[in-house]
Measured scan of single mutants.
Amino acid sequence: TYYTVKSGDTANKIAAQYGVSVANLRSWNGISGDLIFVGQKLIVKKG
């Protein structure tokens, strides 16, 4: 599943929404920190 980042989103918020850990969200998308951008497409695997 892909999720498009919206204004006000955070890695924590997206992870919680899908029931996954922030560490997994980072791993699936090659993100090292919490910096995400509006319009960015993230791979999300439901927990």
Rank of each mutant, 00 (worst) to 15 (best):
S27A: 14
W28Q: 03
A23Y: 06
K6E: 09
G33V: 09
W28L: 06
V44A: 02
G33H: 08
A23G: 09
S21Q: 06
I36K: 02
N29V: 01
I43D: 03
R26Y: 13
K46E: 12
N12D: 15
K13E: 10
G47F: 11
L25P: 01
S32F: 11
A11P: 15
S7T: 13
A15G: 04
K13H: 09
S27R: 12
S27Q: 13
T10M: 03
Y2A: 05
I43E: 05
G47N: 12
G30V: 07
N24R: 08
K13S: 15
I14S: 00
G8W: 04
Y18M: 10
Y2H: 09
D9I: 00
V22H: 04
N29W: 03
W28A: 04
R26P: 02
S21H: 06
Y3P: 02
Y18A: 07
V38E: 10
T1R: 11
N12T: 14
G33T: 09
G8A: 05
Q17Y: 12
I14V: 08
F37V: 11
G39M: 03
I43C: 09
F37R: 09
N12G: 13
D9N: 01
D34V: 07
Y3S: 01
V20N: 01
A11I: 15
Q17V: 10
S27Y: 11
G47P: 15
S21R: 04
Y2W: 14
A23C: 11
Y3A: 04
Y3T: 04
N24Q: 15
R26L: 15
A11T: 15
Y2V: 09
D34S: 08
I31W: 07
Q40W: 04
K41M: 12
Y2E: 08
S32E: 15
K13W: 12
K45H: 12
S7E: 15
K13Y: 09
V22E: 10
T4N: 06
Q40P: 02
T1Y: 14
N29F: 03
Q17A: 13
V5I: 05
A11V: 15
K41V: 15
V38G: 04
A16Q: 12
Q17F: 12
Q17H: 10
L42M: 06
S27G: 08
F37I: 11
K45Y: 14
T4K: 07
T4R: 07
V5Q: 00
N12H: 14
T1C: 15
Y18R: 03
F37K: 10
T1W: 14
L25S: 00
T10L: 04
D9C: 03
N12I: 14
D34N: 10
T1S: 11
L35A: 13
K6R: 10
V22D: 04
K46D: 12
V22A: 08
Q40A: 06
L42N: 00
Y3L: 04
K46M: 15
A16D: 11
Q17R: 12
I43L: 15
I31R: 02
K45D: 11
A23H: 10
K6H: 07
Y2T: 09
V22R: 03
S21T: 13
L25E: 01
K41G: 05
L42H: 00
V20R: 00
V44Y: 03
W28Y: 04
V38D: 06
N29S: 02
G47I: 13
Y3W: 03
D9W: 02
V20A: 04
G47A: 13
F37Y: 13
